[in-house]
Design a protein around this nucleic acid. Sequence first.
DNA 1: ATTATCTATAGATCTATAGATAATGC
DNA 2: ATTATCTATAGATCTATAGATAATGC
Lengths: 188, 188
Amino acid sequence: MPPTTTAERHLRADARRNRDKILVAAEAAFRAQGLAVQMEDIARRADVGVGTLYRHFPTKEALVVELSTRRFGTCIAQAEKALESSDGWAAIESFVNTNAEQMSRDVGLRDTFTAAGKDDERCRGERRQLERRLADLLDRARDEGGLRPDVTAQDVQALMCGLSGAIASGGDWRRLARIILAGLRSPS
Amino acid sequence: MPPTTTAERHLRADARRNRDKILVAAEAAFRAQGLAVQMEDIARRADVGVGTLYRHFPTKEALVVELSTRRFGTCIAQAEKALESSDGWAAIESFVNTNAEQMSRDVGLRDTFTAAGKDDERCRGERRQLERRLADLLDRARDEGGLRPDVTAQDVQALMCGLSGAIASGGDWRRLARIILAGLRSPS
DNA sequence: ATTATCTATAGATCTATAGATAATGC
DNA sequence: ATTATCTATAGATCTATAGATAATGC
């Protein structure tokens, strides 16, 4: 559930409608074309003038941050869901595979991992929270002996960025995820 | 040794000098700032007007292709040198580590791997040749039993792109290279 | 005489805004 | 009456060129 700020609650009916259309359109545009897509394109997809787009999001950065935050949120939720698995190593496999598959279908997600919101406090917060969840996953798997003992959450975060690049360059996510997971697995 | 084309041989003394200065400046600019650096910046570094830069390289793409080709060339040479090693697996380790270390110091190299010259025949040729050398390295290591049997040259190329992204996102190249190499190693 | 260089600026490609017009809701 | 929308365009930020000026080499 997105944070319904005070500003959003008092929105006029048409404004509310347009805001929703913009978010849907931007989501689709980012997924298909990445964060570099033009504001004009997003407005066209939403069937709205660019002026309206800028009324709702004062800068492109603000729009990118809004949607990147949501993507990070999904990713964090996936990490938490994976944590429910009974087996520590299976949780990590599940997390990496799920994300790799999603990145293969979503340029915006790849861009989010590698580039989005480096200067935005909200995005940085999400990154930190993801790192914490990742650390939880790793701690458990390490305790159970499934994980190579020296792997850190930062390593895995960097590897997820790497995975996004590798997928973008035409690699098969299944094969790449398998290799990276094998690299993380404890050498038994 | 760069290919001394006919055009380059007949260059007037000052033109020859400026061309060299431009190549040195562009190399340094790409290394420090990546391929997105501005032509004006490169010209300034070379102590030359932008007009001169454009006289020698008709488009920015041409300059990027020239320097990316060189980077690919170095990389191919490293693969060939690694191939001289007596041990197949050691050759792969050496290749991956060398490149990872270089990528950590050279934004231009990272950009070259992930983005450069996708539309240029010369660059595509270099990519293919690198892939062939990589395949040679893999074949041998596989025969010797050191390599996970299903790994392809394309996988490794994608992983090198990934490594570049992972390093760009702040990862430690030593740790990342170790994990990826462990993933490629045969599970014995 | 020819070939190369420089500066100033045209042109392309975006983000963002101004200000005239239209839709909402009290 | 207020709030939102639209189109046309300003502004920023690049790449690339025109055309007047300078350096080279026969």
